[in-house]
Design a protein around this nucleic acid. Structure first.
Lengths: 198, 198
DNA sequence: TATAAAAATACAAATAAAGTAACATATCTT
DNA sequence: AAGATATGTTACTTTATTTGTATTTTTATA
């Protein structure tokens, strides 16, 4: 049994599905389309996946798993906490980590579905991990003690959204300046560095 | 008969369809979806359009008509030709004018269709107008006499594509610098200004 | 309150997508 | 090269979605 080729086809399907689902959501993409794009026959598809839902589930799980791996390897580095948060922000800005709006729409459109609960459980797990890391960092004095950690995460997401708001973009000559401004705001607030709130 | 409301619904359908077709192409978008998004019942839809194809046709025609209007009003301004070309380039860079890849895929996927011929005839017409304008400008000495005008238009399009190539982007600290470099290259080539080719 | 436009509902007809079966071909292993 | 296994092709049935229309109800307005 040629194990490599098996993997190749399987991976091709997964990758193609990821790209298409990313752009168009799940609903608008057909199994045949995925097969064509991946250069795989329909029979081969059904040998690896029992249906589109199954495929979507694996795509989602791989996505979260990759996301988690990336996060973990960043956090395990021996660099200052602030540097880690900065890099996370930057990764989000660059869209590498961003989650597809169309995919989310499809999944949140049917809260009773299996996909919804898979998505939710994986997402919740990551949030939990991040929360724990941040609480730990807070204990160690790497971030302000008087801040609600949940709120920090919330603001971190908002912050990224602002970067894609045309109104905000209009205020800066280029994207880079806007991103810098947002990041600085997120880290240091609006107060000059030498004034310390009690 | 409240003529304004008629127009409102009609315009809403057209605008919604434009946005959806832009994002997903025509194939992936259903009439019901357009109706829902536009806040219009299916019956109302069929009062204004006979089917999805008809809708797509009107969307495309409006798009080209708007494009032409924008181009015309730019060219009719009393500013140097170089300035006009610069502004056109910039508009393209900013994506205002850019044509949707998904839409083009759907339309060019079926060269026998009515939509294809509508698209082609409108596109050809615009190209013809632009060509004429450039030839006129060449006669008046606003651009180099020894250049093939068709080739200038071709390069103008290529030029815009380069701005979205990650490999090119990697060579510059930000988008703005890249765009400036491309624009300068397009206008003046690589030679220093005081050296004139015979 | 009479009237016209639009919405809601329900549905038959058409089209598209999903999924399967039988057989053909390519590719790897030994 | 032989046999096994993965993949492809074609054709087909079933299921789901979309289209387009007819009928009734609601809404706005003049």
């Amino acid at each position: 049994m040629p194990a490599q080729i098996q993997n190749e086809k399987y991976e091709a399907i997964l990758q193609t599905a990821h790209d298409l689902f990313w752009k168009f959501g799940i609903r608008r993409v057909t199994v045949e389309e995925v097969c064509k794009e991946a250069g795989v026959s329909k029979m081969t598809f059904y040998r690896y996946f029992s249906n589109k839902n199954d495929l979507a589930k694996e795509v989602i799980e791989k996505m979260f798993s990759d996301m988690y791996t990336g996060y973990r390897s960043l956090m395990d580095q021996d660099i200052p906490f602030e540097e880690k948060v900065k890099q996370q922000l930057m990764m989000k800005f660059e869209g590498t980590n961003e989650i597809s709006a169309e995919l989310v729409k499809d999944i949140y459109g049917d809260p009773g579905s299996e996909l919804f609960s898979v998505w939710k459980s994986r997402a919740d797990k990551i949030v939990q991990v991040v929360l724990d890391d941040y609480k730990e960092a807070q204990k160690k004095g790497w971030i302000r003690q008087d801040l609600n950690v949940e709120f920090i995460l919330y603001m971190s997401n908002k912050t990224v959204q602002i970067a894609s708001d045309p109104q905000a973009q209009a205020m800066y000559p280029d994207m880079q300046s806007l991103i810098m401004e947002i990041a600085n705001m997120f880290f240091y607030g609006i107060m000059p560095r030498n004034i310390v709130t009690k």
